[in-house]
């Protein structure tokens, strides 16, 4: 195992962009964790006398229409946006792995029904589905996470299934079966670890997509609800003040861009480093 990690790292560290992505991701994590320590103000602190102040020494990124400090709100927003990204992807990966492995391992009619269902889910423009389901559950941070997760697991399910199908016929599985290993044991000890590499890549890229989706939902007014400061709704709330306060539009948009970019670059690097076929040269 250690050799595999070393091997992986050898290839990974050559990818400069991926390293930049990794550094940025770690940085954003760090910021999210220490947000309460470094935020100069309470993100909910209203001070109407200081509304719409441009970036200055007291308010690094300026203030919003209720006089809340944008810098502090952005710091706290990183927690919301990152957790939406991670939890949504977590949900999506779990569903995807479950469906994919059941389908791939057992095959037969279970496989047919599940794969038909995956087909149907993939046919819907996911955004419509998210829109309707959010309307159904009501927009709050938990539901946004659930909905993004529930509508994005199909890709994972497909390739976990494919991976299982190809692994199923390998010798080591026959050996495991001959030794009397149970289905669960075979799935979790033998098959899944082998399928984990692409799952990790999808998950990383998925975080990026989830953060973007959350911002899009907030833009339409049905994402994480204010006063919770997610980057998406800081951006949306600031949008109407675009002529008076450019900072309310620029900074959150930029933060989303950089974070999403970081995850995408990292994911790409992981894909390259984990996929032996791509290593060639």
């Amino acid at each position: 195992m250690n050799a595999r990690v070393k091997d992986f790292w050898r290839y990974f560290k050559r990818r400069k962009l991926a390293i930049i992505g990794l550094v940025l991701v770690i940085l954003f994590f760090f910021i999210a964790i220490i947000a309460p320590k470094i935020a100069p103000y309470d993100p909910g602190q209203i001070n109407v006398e200081e509304k719409l102040i441009a970036p200055c020494s007291r308010h690094l990124l300026g203030t919003d229409n209720l006089g809340r400090d944008l810098f502090s709100r952005m710091l706290y927003g990183s927690r919301i946006s990152l957790s939406v990204g991670f939890i949504a992807v977590g949900i999506s990966i779990i569903i995807g792995i479950l469906v994919g492995s059941i389908s791939g391992y057992f095959g037969g009619w279970i496989d047919i029904i599940l794969m038909r269902f995956v087909d149907i889910m993939m046919c819907f423009p996911s955004f419509f589905l998210v829109l309707t389901v959010i309307a159904l559950l009501g927009p709050n941070i938990v539901n946004v996470m659930i909905v993004i997760g529930v509508t994005s697991w199909m890709g994972t399910a497909r390739f976990v299934r494919a991976e299982f199908l190809s692994l199923k016929e390998r010798d080591f599985l026959y050996a495991a079966r001959a030794m009397g290993a149970s289905d669960t044991r075979i799935i979790f000890r033998h098959l899944l670890p082998n399928a984990m590499a692409p799952v990790l890549v999808t998950a990383t890229l998925g975080v990026a997509t989830a953060i973007l989706t959350e911002a899009g939902l907030s833009f339409l007014g049905i994402g994480v609800q204010p006063p919770t400061p997610s980057w998406g709704n800081i951006l949306t709330e600031g949008r109407i003040y675009i002529f008076d306060a450019w900072w309310l539009t620029l900074f959150p948009g930029f933060a989303i861009l950089i974070t999403v970019l970081a995850f995408n670059l990292l994911g790409e690097g992981l894909r390259d480093a984990l996929d032996p076929r791509l290593r060639g040269r």
């Binding site: 159904l136 009501g138 927009p139 007014g221 049905i222 609800q225 204010p226 006063p227």
Partner: peptide, 9 residues
């Protein structure tokens, strides 16, 4: 606690 819901909901 402040909660916002879509109009129909």
């Amino acid at each position: 606690k402040l909660r916002l819901y879509e109009w129909s909901v």
